[in-house]
Structures are given as structure tokens and as C-alpha cells.
Nucleic acid binder design. Structure first.
Length: 412
RNA sequence: GCGGGAGUAGCUCAGUUGGUUAGAGCGCCAGAUUGUGAUUCUGGAUGUCGCCGGUUCAAUUCCGGUCUCUCGCCCCA
């Protein structure tokens, strides 16, 4: 293991890639802001308890994927594997129950000790939203509409598919669990080893097994929809009706389940076929029980998170940086920098190379996609002028140095 | 965590049936042109052949281990 290598599953965001990430986060936050979501930034680590309690003691995330360590005070600390638990904790420790309903947007790095693959990293980035204090299915619809708006704005509307399901309320889920377990027990000899384990830990997971034998069994399994209480059924109908009313395309997938314990009612995923086994690009659901589970007042919540790296892989061209003006000194570099600074002060993007002859500097200007070059030739300067070259039109005029800033600030 | 594939220059890759200075294209730097973006021409730099060990007179090449990436599984954004 070389000390100069990044830790397994981590990577550097070089400028092109960083720009892509920033564009995604900016587009998402712009959409979220228009819908009334404000940004929240919680710490990237919490006491281990925060995640262990909320994610479920037996979930994979808790049992094998957490980056946990003991700090110098002897406390067990964990790098956050997802965003919702930290937001819920902030909600409680910040006394935010006074401000319900709350619309929150977050972004930042998450950490999971998994085996890396394309689209799966140990440090990755998510954007996400949480809507707290709303038990109305309209909340689900609005949060889904926001996700759809963001993906559409990123140009991914045609590349993703929304699948949605309901996990029911607590009574529905308990009843369904019994029904499903009874059914699976009758076919246990046809189930894969993994699914037999799933029956003990999280029976719903058997439903979305990729094993062919499991799929045959599951095809005839009872569905949660038949175990729903009238309330849960109405709730789900209100969500799907809302999506239809807003013209958001979706498909009900009765076998869609969620890994984390805190979900109830609505569960959904936006998936793509373009990323191999890591096809989920944005996912979330309702978690009415979470805050109560953490010891707070019963507070409904719904939200989602999206993987920025996965979104970035679906976006073809990174957005272009703003086109600069290239300042090209021929003699005194300091004069060039002075002019560059006055242009920058006026809001113009300016680049000036530190070395190179005129030809090199012009080539560099072209490479930077500069719009104009300001050439500081001694002859013009002697007359108080500079040459202003339009690099698109390949034309050049002499302009007084005095009016240069105004002229270029206007051209922007 | 389990199973498969890969690793040679900044990038894409060739190559060595084990043998002296390891190559191409693109890119980069410099010059031809001490005042102009393309093309062309000339010159140049960059590799511990992923890492460690073994076999051998000799290993980038063969063997073992390891690391990283990658595909699938588990799971997930």
C-alpha cells in the first residue's frame, strides 16, 4: 500500500469532475430553493449510536459498512453513511420541532466501507431533501415532484425510470409480514440460501432477490397491497393520483422494498440501466417512525437522497467554465496583471499566463476558450492603447486603455 | 464480505517465445517565427513495465503474494 495512493474507494475530484459535481448540486439546490427548501449542513460524523439506532441493528449498513472509530475522548464516532439520521438528530438537538413543517436540503460526502465498484465508492457524495412534519400524501407528491424536476433539469428525464411502492403503515406491515412468511415457509426448499437468511432478518427483501429460483417463487407470493389497511391503501392511492395529476411518469413495482428499517408507506427509486449493477440514482421514502424511534415527539417525515457520482456519470458533457478574457503582455507582466485585476474587479473573468512568448500565449488563450485577447504591445501602449482581439471573429482593433474595462464589462 | 477480469509514459495502447539504451499515436515543453491562435517541420522531457518476494547468469516477461481498478453477488446513492 503506497502512501501516495488514495485510500481504497476514495478519489480526487479534479477540476473537470468537480465542476460537474458543482453543477449538479447547484441545479438541485436551485430547484429545491424554488420549492421552499433551505440548506442544512450537519456534521459528517456523529456518535455511532445515532446510526446504529436509526438504521436498524441488523442492516448491512450498520453491521458491516460503517466507518467507526474511537476518538480521543473514548467515544465511538461514525462517519455518516447517509444523511437522514443526522438531519433527524439535528432536528431533535436543535429544537426544530418548533418550526414544523420543515423543508431541508443537504449535500456532501457519505462514507460506507463496501467493496468499491463503478458508481460505488467508500467516500461518495449525496444530495438529498427531507420534509418533516407533514403526514399528508401531498407531501410525498411534492417531494417526488422535486426529484423529477431536478432530474429533468439535469437532462436525465429520458434516462431514468421512477418505480414506486408502498410499505404500508405499521399494522399493514405486521400483517403482511405474517402472510409473506407463511407463504415463503411453504416454499423454503425452493429458495436460495441467501433468501432463507433474509426470511429471518428482513423477509421483504426476498421479494427483490435476483436469484432465478427465488423469482419463480416470489412471482406467486402475496403482495403487500392485499394486506394494506384502508388508511394505508388510501394514502398510496393519493400519492399515485398526485403523480398522475402532475404528469410525472411512474410505475408501481409491488416488489420494491427498502433496506433501512425506518421506512413506511411510500418507497421509491429512480433507476437507470446505464450503470450496471448500481442502477439506483435517487431513492427515498416516508419515515414516519424515525424521529419517535430516536426519542423525539412522533414526527412524520419523507425524503430522498441521490448519488452525485452516479448522476455525474449520466451527464455527458461537463458544463463549460465561463469564457475568460486573456491578457497577453509582451513586455511588462506586472502591467498585465494590473489590467487583469481591474477587469476582474469589474466582474470580468480574466486569465493571464505567467510565461511564454506571444505565440504561446495566444495558443493558450485559444485553449482556454477565451472570448477576447488584450494584447499589450509597446507601440500601442506608447499611444495609450491596447489591441483588443476578438478570438471568435479573428479580428483586432486598437482601443484606448482608459475605456477597456467598461468596454469588456459591457461585452460580457 | 464472496467469485471472475485487468494493471506498460499525462491519455489510448503495442511489445518482449526471459537477454544489453522499453515503443507508437495523442498530449506536454522548446525552437523554426525576439508582435499573433491553424497546419507543417525540428528537437526535448516523462516510465521505479502497480508493489513485494521467489526461480534464473539474467525478470517488464515465468511463479507466489499483495495493492488498486473493473464485472457479477451481497447491499446500496
Amino acid at each position: 500500500m503506497s502512501a501516495l495512493q488514495p485510500v481504497r474507494g476514495t478519489h480526487d475530484l479534479l477540476p473537470d469532475e468537480a465542476r460537474r459535481h458543482r453543477a449538479i448540486e447547484a441545479a438541485a439546490f436551485a430547484c429545491a430553493g424554488r420549492a421552499g427548501f433551505g440548506e442544512i449542513a450537519t456534521p459528517i460524523f456523529e456518535f455511532t449510536e445515532v446510526f446504529a439506532r436509526t438504521l436498524g441493528e441488523t442492516s448491512d449498513v450498520v453491521t458491516k459498512e460503517m466507518y467507526s472509530f474511537t476518538d480521543r475522548s473514548g467515544d465511538s464516532i461514525t462517519l455518516r453513511p447517509e444523511g437522514t439520521a443526522g438531519v433527524a438528530r439535528a432536528f431533535l438537538s436543535g429544537g426544530l420541532a418548533q418550526h414544523l413543517p420543515l423543508k431541508l436540503f443537504y449535500r456532501g460526502p457519505m462514507f460506507r466501507h463496501e467493496r468499491p465498484q463503478k458508481g460505488r465508492l467508500r467516500q461518495f457524495h449525496q444530495i438529498g431533501v427531507e420534509l418533516l412534519g407533514v403526514d399528508n400524501p401531498l407531501g410525498d407528491v411534492e417531494v417526488l415532484a422535486l426529484a423529477w424536476r431536478i432530474l429533468s433539469d439535469l437532462g436525465l428525464g429520458a434516462k431514468v425510470r421512477l418505480e414506486i411502492n408502498t410499505l404500508g403503515d405499521a399494522p399493514s406491515r405486521a400483517a403482511y409480514r405474517e402472510t409473506l412468511l407463511a407463504f415463503l415457509s411453504g416454499h423454503i426448499d425452493q429458495l436460495s440460501q441467501e433468501s432463507r437468511q433474509r426470511m429471518e432478518r428482513n423477509p421483504l427483501r426476498v421479494l427483490d432477490s435476483k436469484d432465478e429460483g427465488d423469482k419463480r417463487v416470489v412471482a406467486n407470493a402475496p403482495l403487500i397491497h392485499d394486506s394494506l389497511t384502508p388508511e394505508a391503501r388510501d394514502f398510496f392511492a393519493a400519492v399515485t393520483n398526485g403523480l398522475e395529476a402532475l404528469g410525472i411518469p411512474f410505475e408501481v413495482n409491488p416488489r420494491l422494498v427498502r433496506g433501512l428499517d425506518y421506512y413506511s408507506h411510500t418507497a421509491f427509486e429512480f433507476t437507470t440501466t446505464a450503470l450496471g449493477a448500481q442502477g439506483t440514482v435517487l431513492a427515498g421514502g416516508r419515515y414516519d417512525g424515525l424521529i419517535g424511534m430516536m426519542g423525539g415527539p412522533p414526527t412524520p417525515g419523507i425524503g430522498w437522497a441521490a448519488g452525485v457520482e452516479r448522476l455525474a456519470m449520466l451527464i455527458d458533457e461537463p458544463p463549460m467554465p465561463p469564457r475568460p478574457v486573456a491578457v497577453v503582455p509582451m513586455g511588462d507582466g506586472l502591467l498585465g496583471l494590473k489590467i487583469a485585476e481591474s477587469l476582474r474587479a469589474a466582474g470580468v473573468s480574466v486569465d493571464m499566463a505567467f510565461s511564454g512568448n506571444l505565440k504561446k500565449r495566444m495558443a493558450r488563450a485559444a485553449k482556454l476558450n477565451a472570448r477576447f485577447a488584450v494584447l499589450l504591445g509597446e507601440e500601442e501602449l506608447a499611444r495609450g492603447h491596447v489591441s483588443l482581439r476578438d478570438l471568435d471573429a479573428a479580428t483586432q482593433t486598437e482601443v484606448p486603455l482608459d475605456g477597456l474595462v467598461e468596454r469588456l464589462a459591457q461585452a460580457e
